[in-house]
Amino acid sequence: MNETDDPIMFSALQHWSYCPRQCALIHLEQAFEENVHTMRGNAAHEQVDNPGFASFEGVRSERALPVWSDRLGLVGKCDVVEFHPDGQVYPVEYKHGRKKLQVHDDLQLAAQAMCLEEMFGKPVLKGAIYHHTSRRRREVTITPELRKQVEETIAAIRAMLAWGKLPPPANDARCKECSLIDICQPQAIALCAGHTQLEQTLYEPED
């Protein structure tokens, strides 16, 4: 089995949605650095990184639950999965920061829901993102559009792994918060690309 056949981690979907180059650096080149944002994320996960369970009012909560999908080729751990008395399976993903919409977080949660559906044989129609700073949940409906985006993202990541090259840098506002900015060098690469394009057009006749 080569690396393009290996199961894809949930985190890869989030990384790709945030920035394809970040995803490639982490999952193709195995590069990673910490910054204040990743350390805050690690702190937010401390209470759910250790496997275990708790029950409250008939709801059983499993922490750090390993899940997978053979159909999608996905694997990972859910921070928390709640099993309700009515049979509802409800994943909860922990994130640092305040309650706000982050599409890449929703994508990761939808991937977890699709794995849980395959494992338990029942629909998972909703889940939640728990925002550590505000101590609030944001409920996410697992829509057909979100499911389609999960499958398209998986296909894009596999294509990148098969290609074996880094996508170009975003070189925008996302870069300032990325822990890989020193490895990625988005401004320098964008500047080199600009120089190359200028050299190619330098001696072209003007219209």
Rank of each mutant, 00 (worst) to 15 (best):
C184P: 05
F83E: 01
V67F: 00
M1F: 09
Q102Y: 08
D207N: 15
H15G: 03
G97L: 04
L109R: 01
A159I: 14
L25C: 08
T38V: 01
A190Q: 09
A128E: 04
Q112I: 04
G127M: 01
C23K: 06
F32T: 06
C192I: 13
W163N: 09
L198G: 14
A159F: 11
F32H: 12
D79S: 07
R135S: 09
E62W: 06
Y94L: 08
L180P: 02
C23P: 07
G52N: 02
T4S: 12
E139W: 06
K122E: 09
D70H: 13
Q149P: 01
C19V: 01
M160W: 12
R71E: 15
A162C: 10
S69E: 05
E145M: 06
Q149V: 08
C178V: 02
L116Y: 00
Q14D: 12
A155R: 03
F56V: 15
M114W: 03
L146W: 15
A156R: 03
G87S: 05
H37Y: 12
H84F: 05
P91M: 08
L72E: 02
R147F: 13
G41I: 04
V48M: 07
R71F: 10
N35M: 07
E62Q: 08
R40K: 03
Y203M: 14
K148T: 14
W68I: 07
Q187D: 05
P168V: 13
T153Q: 05
W163Q: 12
D106T: 03
C23R: 07
C78I: 04
Q47D: 07
P144R: 12
Q108D: 06
L202E: 04
K126P: 00
L166G: 04
Q185E: 12
E57D: 13
T201Q: 13
E199W: 10
L65P: 08
Y203L: 13
N50P: 01
E152L: 11
E206D: 11
V48L: 07
D105S: 10
V89C: 01
G41S: 03
E206Q: 14
T141K: 11
Q30E: 13
G194I: 03
L161C: 07
D106A: 07
R174F: 13
L109I: 02
A128H: 05
V89S: 00
L166M: 11
C192S: 10
E62K: 05
A111C: 13
V75K: 12
L166T: 04
K176V: 09
W16P: 03
K95L: 10
R40Y: 03
P91S: 13
L13M: 06
Q200N: 15
V81W: 00
S179D: 10
M119T: 01
C192F: 15
